[in-house]
């Protein structure tokens, strides 16, 4: 019995809790990608770097507040800086749209041209981030590190396995939950949100109904910037901030968005969690876990790890390939924003 409990705690500690918070981060990222897909109808390659941009400004404001002696006590100061980071990123996204994307939208260019333009934006955003904060790793989490410490848990439960819950992990899930609820409320209940869905659903009819496309696009960029910054900051708090890592998040994020059906917000969330859980579960070494659940003489000898962490991108890729081969429209058949 204790063995089973130990095994369960092991799973919670190393798979379920980390994958849940990682999944929430990916879901927020995939939501941003899927919104741009649904409304502006192109795959935004600059999204990873937009996340880095938003996180960078949040870090700057965090440092500023830390310098001024402001803090949130047990919570990271970054939470206080978050709205400011989002604001700067939203302004940046809107300016980029005015300077770059609007031209192709007015000309009704093929989506792939917009995607290439997003590659240009990626370069520019990337260099802005390099200019301002450099390429090194930054850790900006402060406040209380753990909600539950592994040692405390062991003492409390008497088990040999400890379970820890980082503040950032709990925070990720809570903040992502609030953000997603707010997004769905917005899309479902507000005039502007419905207009966005209508525009995504049937652009011509939306125009005939008097919906102003430029307003829709602007609001889309604001929301996308907010989601990207949130995803980036939560990821950075939980792990660390490094510009190149954020570029690499593109693959799992796109895999999540495509798995859920492009343009489908609910799908993007589901996709984020599927990708995160697959990644963590496939790269977790099950040796200790099996030791607990298997009879003593059947103990495994190796690490029992399906794939080393170095190949975690392969997981996203395999998911992507499976979706493309089996159901290219994704689990929730996307293409338009449906809330």
């Amino acid at each position: 019995m204790t063995d089973l409990l130990n095994a369960l705690v092991l799973m919670l500690n190393f798979v379920i809790i980390p994958a849940t918070s990682y999944g929430a981060q990916l879901a927020l990222g995939a939501l941003g990608v899927t919104l741009v897909y649904g409304i502006l109808r192109f795959g935004n390659f600059a999204h990873g770097d937009t996340m880095a941009f938003g996180t960078m400004f949040t870090i700057f404001f965090t440092w500023l507040f830390q310098g001024l002696g402001l803090s949130l006590g047990v919570l990271p100061t970054a939470l206080l800086a978050l709205p400011f980071g989002i604001g700067v990123t939203a302004l940046y996204a809107i300016s980029i749209d005015r300077l770059v994307y609007r031209h192709y939208r007015v000309k009704r260019s093929a989506p792939v041209i917009l995607t290439i333009a997003s590659v240009g934006v990626m370069f520019v955003t990337n260099s802005v981030v390099r200019f301002l904060i450099g390429t090194n790793e930054q850790r900006f989490s402060d406040g209380q590190k753990f909600i539950i410490k592994a040692r405390d848990f062991k003492e409390w439960s008497g088990l040999s396995e400890g379970m820890k819950l980082k503040t950032t992990e709990a925070l990720t899930v809570v903040v992502a939950g609030i953000a997603v609820a707010a997004l769905f409320w917005f899309l479902q209940r507000t005039r502007m949100g419905k207009a966005m869905r209508a525009y995504s659903d049937n652009e011509d009819l939306a125009l005939l109904s008097g919906i102003n496309p430029e307003r829709v696009v602007m609001v889309t960029w604001i929301i996308t910037a907010a989601l990207a910054t949130l995803a980036g900051v939560l990821f950075g708090l939980d792990k660390s901030f490094k510009p190149f890592t954020y570029f690499q998040l593109l693959l799992p994020i796109f895999a999540a968005a495509i798995l859920g059906g492009v343009g489908n917000p609910l799908g993007a969330i589901a996709g984020g969690f599927v990708v995160a859980f697959s990644e963590v579960m496939v790269t977790y070494p099950y040796k200790k876990f099996l030791k607990y659940v298997m009879p003593e003489n059947l103990e495994p000898s190796g690490l029992m790890q399906l794939l080393t962490v170095d190949y975690k991108f392969a997981v996203s890729f395999i998911i992507l390939v499976a979706v493309l081969l089996i159901k290219p429209t994704g689990l929730f058949s996307g293409k338009v924003i449906r809330a």
């Binding site: 192109f42 795959g43 390659f45 093929a110 989506p111 792939v112 995607t115 593109l250 693959l251 796109f254 895999a255 495509i258 991108f313 996203s316 890729f317 992507l320 390939v321 493309l324 290219p328």
Partner: peptide, 10 residues
Amino acid sequence: ADYLAIATLG
């Protein structure tokens, strides 16, 4: 077109 892009990126 962008699915090919993502697959090749992967």
